[in-house]
């Protein structure tokens, strides 16, 4: 009981401050925190549904964002990845990994004061001690009355290392290219409803362009001056670029049938 009271008091004290106006679960917007402001975000993503296999992955992130002034922002993430999947008809296996990420974002123009909001974003990550990732984004957004539009062009570079014959080897790199498009209708100051589209393209160094998969689904957000909660459900619609490696209508070995994400943000 004592613990519940302490947690409740802590949560309410967080709610007395002001959180950033984030609207989407996946698509980034150009806004950056003002100098000295700190935000805390909790992410949970469930990914589930592989072909012929039980699969459920849960990704959790805790993010601390810092406003640096002059339209710059940085953030640090602590990540946990868990995958549970069937290995035979009667058994499942669970794997766990942790990771760390650091992002930098600079806003070049504002979605209200300028014709178009523009920001550049970069994030580097270490996953499980043997995987390095560099992610860069071009972020565009525009606010027209109660309507918010956002677009992200995302380029990633992933490199995995393994210990082979007494030497550290890299088994090649992947360069996923992603395009995110999002729309939100902010019905009032506290509630918004919209959708997000995600186009994921896998481009490998050896096999070239392997697939282009489209996801899409609804996003809702609730917010006060001091916190926000965003939820999104994103089913896979289909593979729009079939190749010998991914000939099916959907890609259900490397990607999942659906993803669901919930995000809670509060200000410190």
């Amino acid at each position: 009981m004592k613990r519940i009271v302490i947690i409740t008091v802590a949560v309410f004290s967080f709610l007395l401050s002001h959180a950033q106006d984030r609207n989407f679960a996946r698509t980034y917007q150009t806004n950056v925190l003002s100098k000295g402001a700190i935000d805390l975000e909790f992410w949970h993503t469930s990914r589930f549904g592989h072909s012929g296999q039980y699969f459920h992955a849960q990704d959790q992130r805790i993010e601390v964002e810092f406003g640096l002034g002059k339209n710059w922002q940085t953030a640090f993430y602590f990540n946990r990845y868990q995958e549970r999947y069937s290995t035979s008809l009667n058994g499942t296996t669970t794997s766990n990994e942790i990771g760390f990420s650091n992002e930098w974002k600079v806003k070049l123009s504002d979605p209200v004061a300028n014709k178009l909001g523009v920001a550049l974003y970069s994030e580097w990550s270490i996953k499980g001690g043997d995987e390095l990732e560099l992610e860069t984004k071009l972020i565009l957004d525009k606010v027209i009355g109660k309507n918010l539009f956002a677009f992200n062009g995302v380029y990633e570079l992933e490199k995995e290392f393994e210990w082979v014959n007494g030497r550290l080897n890299s088994d090649g790199s992947e360069m996923p290219l992603e395009f995110d498009l999002a729309y939100m209708y902010n019905a009032n100051k506290k509630f918004g409803i919209g959708f997000e589209l995600r186009n994921h393209n896998k481009i490998g160094k050896v096999n070239g362009w392997e697939h282009s998969v489209l996801f899409g689904g609804p996003t809702i957000n609730f917010r006060s001056n001091r916190w926000f909660v965003i939820a999104n459900y994103l089913p896979q619609w289909g593979n729009v670029y079939k190749t010998d490696i991914a000939p099916g209508n959907k890609v259900l070995d490397e990607l999942e049938r659906a993803e669901a994400r919930i995000l809670v943000g509060i200000s410190l």
């Binding site: 106006d21 925190l33 209200v112």
Partner: peptide
């Protein structure tokens, strides 16, 4: 600079 950090202008 100072207002767009928390909400759209």
């Amino acid at each position: 600079f100072n207002c767009a950090g928390c909400h759209n202008l």
